[in-house]
């Protein structure tokens, strides 16, 4: 076992033990914090696939996060008001079923990432950063001006959506659902990273010409990675909206894109488990600093600046040493 494997196992155990202990001692707030960390981790894993493995610096992942949130909000809104989502060409009803909502959120995230990616990936470098940022902002302003679904005020859902056989309003049961999804996402992304597609993607990040020379089109690799990335982040958005029972344009804002990026950077770019560590650390910082000072973003900014300037590998780079294999 490498140090990284040990660290991964320790991290996942910690993320499970803390809420279980909180459940035993009846501290529901801690469970909610852990659930937030798990959901942010999923969002970060999504971004990491594009950013870490593909080298695609997307500053617009809030778009997919928010779309996932709105997929949940819109479906549940129609279900709780007993109105149809659409009557033509096919009748679509709202739903309060989590699995259906997840599928819709994943679909919405993937579709949006496919379209935004197809346009943005025509460009590189700084252009790509600014364009993804701009598309995210476009959806943000669209959500604000779309009064049918709450506009600036967002949408509230009275009761958390349901999962067969579980009481989702119980914090520990909702945590269990999110944790299980995190495990599934981690395993899938790990498989993707190990697959020939993942190898090609990382190769393309390092040298597009060589990838092209062996007969692969970098654009298609990038677009596939970006689409999967959007799908995962969309799922996280639906979970986050369900956690808060609320979705608003804030989920689509550029600050959210920045925060998702922070999860990836704090943990370590390009490590499968990096965003899990990053999200946990972010929640820890938010809770400890946010509790002691109203202006905790100053400290967050200083820490981020420190990590970028002096500790580029993030938490994983610090604890597990340099990345193996391809770097």
């Amino acid at each position: 076992m490498t140090r990284e494997t040990v660290l991964n196992a320790g991290l996942m155990t910690l993320l499970l033990v803390v809420p279980l202990a909180a459940w035993t001692f009846d501290e529901p707030f801690l469970i909610t914090l852990a659930t937030r960390a798990v959901i942010f981790a999923i969002a970060g894993i999504g971004l990491n696939l594009a950013l870490g493995f593909g080298g695609l610096v997307s500053f617009g992942h809030a778009a997919f996060f928010g779309l996932g949130g709105y997929a949940m909000g819109i479906l549940a809104h129609h279900a709780q008001t007993y109105t149809a989502l659409a009557t033509w060409p096919v009748a679509i009803e709202g739903t309060k079923s989590m699995p259906v909502i997840w599928l819709m959120a994943i679909g919405a995230g993937a579709l949006a990432a496919l379209v935004i990616g197809a346009l943005s990936l025509r460009t590189k470098g700084v252009y790509f950063i600014m364009i993804t940022l701009a598309f995210g902002q476009m959806l943000y302003y669209f959500a604000i001006s779309w009064s049918a679904y709450g506009g600036e005020d967002g949408l509230s859902i009275y009761v958390r959506n349901g999962f067969p056989g579980l009481n989702t309003m119980d914090p520990i049961q909702f945590f269990a659902i999110c944790y299980a999804l995190l495990l599934i996402v981690l395993l899938s992304v790990n498989r993707v990273a190990q697959s020939s597609f993942g190898m090609m993607l990382r190769a393309a990040r390092q040298s597009e010409d060589r990838v092209q020379a062996v007969g692969q089109a970098p654009f298609r690799l990038y677009l596939t990675a970006f689409t999967i990335s959007g799908a995962i982040t969309g799922l996280a958005g639906a979970l986050f909206a369900d956690l808060n029972r609320f979705v608003s344009p804030t989920m689509l804002s550029w600050q959210t894109s920045g925060e998702i990026m922070i999860f990836v950077i704090l943990g370590g770019v390009g490590r499968v488990f990096g965003p899990v560590a990053g999200a946990a650390l972010f929640i820890l910082l938010e809770h400890s600093l946010g509790g002691s000072s109203e202006y905790w973003h100053i400290y967050l900014g200083a820490i981020l600046l420190g990590v970028v300037l002096f500790a580029r590998g993030g938490l994983y780079g610090f604890l597990a040493g340099r990345e193996q294999a391809d770097d």
Binding site: G125, Y295, H297, I298, L300, A302, L304, L305, V308
Partner: peptide, 28 residues
């Protein structure tokens, strides 16, 4: 000055960190 030789990701993150610091500093 430390960012000119870095890649765009580092520049984005460091200047994003500056936004957090400057905005909260101004609010303070």
């Amino acid at each position: 000055r430390r960012l000119y030789d870095r890649d765009h990701l580092d520049q984005v993150l460091a200047t994003f960190a500056l936004i957090l610091i400057l905005s909260e500093g101004t609010r303070w």
